[in-house]
Design a binder for these strands. Sequence first.
DNA 1: CGCCCAGGGTTCCCTTAAGGAACTCACCCT
DNA 2: AGGGTGAGTTCCTTAAGGGAACCCTGGGCG
Lengths: 153, 153
Amino acid sequence: MQRTSFSGMACSIARTLDVMGEPWTPLILRDVWVGMTRFEQLQADLGISRKVLTERLNHLVEQGVLERRPYDQRPRYEYVLTAKGTELIDLLMVMKAWGDRHLAGEAGPPVLYRHHACGEIADVALRCDHCGEPMRAGDVDLLPGPGVAKTAT
Amino acid sequence: MQRTSFSGMACSIARTLDVMGEPWTPLILRDVWVGMTRFEQLQADLGISRKVLTERLNHLVEQGVLERRPYDQRPRYEYVLTAKGTELIDLLMVMKAWGDRHLAGEAGPPVLYRHHACGEIADVALRCDHCGEPMRAGDVDLLPGPGVAKTAT
DNA sequence: CGCCCAGGGTTCCCTTAAGGAACTCACCCT
DNA sequence: AGGGTGAGTTCCTTAAGGGAACCCTGGGCG
């Protein structure tokens, strides 16, 4: 199927997709986040092909999102989120919020978050990390940053 | 390549991936967001195969994320974000923030956001929509919601 | 002390999706 | 009538996902 790699694009969205944009990868991260950290668990829970699971896990380890570490004398390994990987969970929380709002239907959300700070059932909201006001699609202008692609002189 | 559909899973992340998890889809939405709304523009900018672009656009229209509308007497169409689609941009903003932080390297971010409310260069941060405090991977407990999968009685 | 088990992968074949180029179609403009 | 343009469609090739079978290593156990 020869998929095009996005990593060459001067775009942080494309680069992020290169790390976690492949099929299954977000679901693998979700499972690891909630404590399903072993190969067999992931394979059984997701119903993913073992071959593809191996590929995805290796890729995530290479990218520094997961860490593979032994949990036994025998060759047994589990995968845990690194700091970099934990920050990626932000993305899953936003996906969950959008899916709950637009795709859950009559039944309502399958999962709820209870926020430690306030103890309430809640979802994430996007705010400006500078002023704290809401910050969404219509609230920003896009400017070229230092890393814009330079066209040859 | 017979990809497994995620839509049957009782998980809002999986369902969201079913809408926008295919390769190219987030980049298409990014382009539409910044004003590249026509077939030829998208194809030229992304270098995507025309066939795949057609499939993705049709899917996004079916899902109510984009609207296809004529802009000429001739059969000419542009694609614009619906309200549902505009909310999906949240995801792209979070991807951009993560990519900037972890993948931009020396060069720095290719693109910057200026927040209308404060006029500053900023990125999104995740906050609780109930109490406004930060809300990230470690700040929540997961509880079963009303839409959990019921196993047969 | 030899056998079996379990976790964690590999290998192999089959099917299908992505790439890519060529072709089509409808309408406008000379 | 002929050409141009945007928006797709068609067709072929290649590679990625699905799925099942196989392998390897180190206990545990009769």
